[in-house]
Every structure is written in C-alpha cells, then in structure tokens.
C-alpha cells in the first residue's frame, strides 16, 4: 500500500504539473484545463501547473463579492465549493494523503534522516482559524476603493505558492525582482520554516496550517470512504499509532479529522483490526442500517 501511494503521489504531482513549455512560451500554462481545480494544494502560478488551486480560487471568488453593484449577480464560487464538498463527502481527506503535491513534498522531506519530534496537539486547530480568517473573512473585509479584496492566504502564508509559483517565476522573469515586497520575504521565511519542520515532523503544514485539509476534515466522520476498526482483533500493540504520519490513534478514533487516509495503519496492523471500507450513500434493505461500524 505504501509503494502504491508513492506511485500515485508521484504520477499526480508530475501529471498535474506537466506543462514543460514554460521556458519558451507564456511562462505559465494558459489553457482550458485551468478552469478545473486541483483536488490538492497546487499553486496555479506554478509555471508547469495545468490546473487551478482550489484555495486560491475560493479566495478570489470571495474577494470579488463586494465589487458587484445592486442588481448584479456576483460569481459566488459555488462550483468550487460544490467540487470540494463533493470530494470531501465521498473520500474525506484522502486527497491530502494521495493527491496533494505539497503533501507529497513534505513526505519526501520527512525522509531526511534527522531526529524526529512530535507536534503539540493543540496546534492542529490553527488550520480551522486559517480557513475562516485568511480564506473566507479577510478577502471580503479588506478591500480597495473599488471593493476588490485580495487572496490573503496566498499573500501572507501559502508556502506552496512560494515554492511552486514565486521562486520559479522570479528565476524565469528576473524583472520581477524589482517589484518584490516584504510579503515575498515573509513568505520565504514561512516556506523555510515549513521545510525545516517537515524534516523533523511529519506533515507540519497539513496538520497545522492547511485550509484545504481543514475543509476536507469537516467530512472525515461522514464520508463514504472510512476506516473500520474491529475491536476484537486489536491487541493494543500501538503499531498503527507509531506508523501514523498525523498522530492519530486509529483504535480510539479511526475516522479522526486528522486522518489523511494514507492507510499506513492498515499495513502496520498484523491482526487485521483495521480495514478500509466504502459505504453506500443510502443503506439498502439488506443492510438494516448497519453499513459501517465506525
């Protein structure tokens, strides 16, 4: 399962960043695929990106809400909300574990042989604040004279934007150096901290700051894809806990909002106490309502 996940992560990261003509053409890909959002965090200003970033898209929709006058219909961004909500309801945080390119980068950084540390658990709630404040509130509250807001998560925090968008673009277009502001250096500091912590701690950005992970995690307990725990098979060896990259205790809370569905706990458990299940949206007559134990 672990090698399958690595293969899927690699193929998706390369497949969704497959525009290799950027050194010769328009610097970034400009085509119809940009109307589709990536299910994971992948900056749409990355020169090789084929798809749009869902977090950037939501912020830009929200940022434009106050520009519309009376009687005009604003773009509410319901397409992106519907798209992300559908994914969350069906598979929960599975895109974090299998699809997100920035999650994949953190997985690679964690392979660096350095002493490892644990996350102070209350920090995992910060990501919900990031989602509400930087993605939903600030872009609609802080607006210019025309009523247009800005994508504040992208501007102040997003390390994926710095790594995949800012650094390559500044290298490709040296003229941008002249317009660099303090925001750029702030984001370089944040990216550097994330890179350092990702070598010491598994997936620090996903667990602490990622607004997309926070959104998907709202569906972890009700999604159709779930982990099932069989109490009778568990001997409390804690093997699943040691292997979990996000600090979940699968035998206590198999469908924790922190679970990114990497399924390493399934590989770790020698007693088949954990299993992967896909529930039907509505229980059939033969199920008697008991479709899942979790």
């Amino acid at each position: 399962m672990v090698s399958l996940r690595w293969l899927v992560q690699t193929l998706i990261a390369l497949g969704t960043n497959a525009y290799l003509l950027f050194p010769f053409g328009s610097v970034i890909y400009q085509g119809p695929l940009k109307a589709v959002c990536h299910p994971g965090l992948n900056c749409y200003s990355c020169p090789a990106a084929l798809l749009s970033c869902p977090v950037g898209a939501v912020q830009n929709f929200v940022a434009g809400l106050r520009m519309f006058g009376v009687g005009m219909i604003p773009n509410l961004g319901t397409m992106v909300i519907g798209y992300l909500g559908f994914i969350g309801t069906v598979v929960g945080r599975l895109p974090c574990g299998w699809i997100c390119p920035f999650g994949f980068i953190q997985d690679l950084l964690y392979k660096v042989p350095l002493p490892k540390i644990s996350l102070w658990q209350p920090l995992r709630y910060v990501k919900y604040g990031v989602l509400v404040i930087f993605v939903l509130i600030l872009p609609v509250v802080l607006v210019d004279k025309a009523g247009l807001g800005e994508p504040w998560f992208c501007k102040l925090i997003c390390p994926a934007g710095t790594l995949e968008g800012a650094l390559p673009l500044i290298l490709l277009k040296p003229s941008l150096w002249g317009t660099v502001t303090l925001y750029f250096w702030n984001k370089i500091v944040i990216l550097s901290l994330i890179v350092i912590f990702a070598m010491l701690l598994s997936r620090p950005f996903c667990r602490v700051l990622c607004p997309l992970g926070a959104f998907y995690s709202l569906f972890s307990r009700i999604s159709l894809v779930q982990l099932e725990f069989t109490e009778g098979n568990c001997v409390r060896c804690e093997s699943c806990v040691r292997y979990c990259p996000t600090g979940v205790v699968p035998y206590k809370d198999p469908n924790s909002p922190e679970c990114i569905m990497c399924l390493r706990c399934l590989d770790a458990c020698r007693f088949q106490a954990l299993d992967f299940s896909i529930r039907r949206p509505l229980p059939g007559p033969a199920d008697n309502g008991a479709v899942s134990q979790s």
């Binding site: 200003s45 898209a57 961004g77 941008l176 750029f184």
Partner: peptide
Amino acid sequence: TGDLEFLNNLGNTICLSCIGVG
C-alpha cells in the same frame, strides 16, 4: 453562473499575491 469562465481567466494570469510582488 459563470464560475467556469471566472476560474479560467483567473488561472491564466500570474498570481502576484502568490509571488509577493506589486
């Protein structure tokens, strides 16, 4: 309601906020 077009236009421009310029 036009979200597709909005998103296409958005994705086809360089996000200056992402870069921290301007």
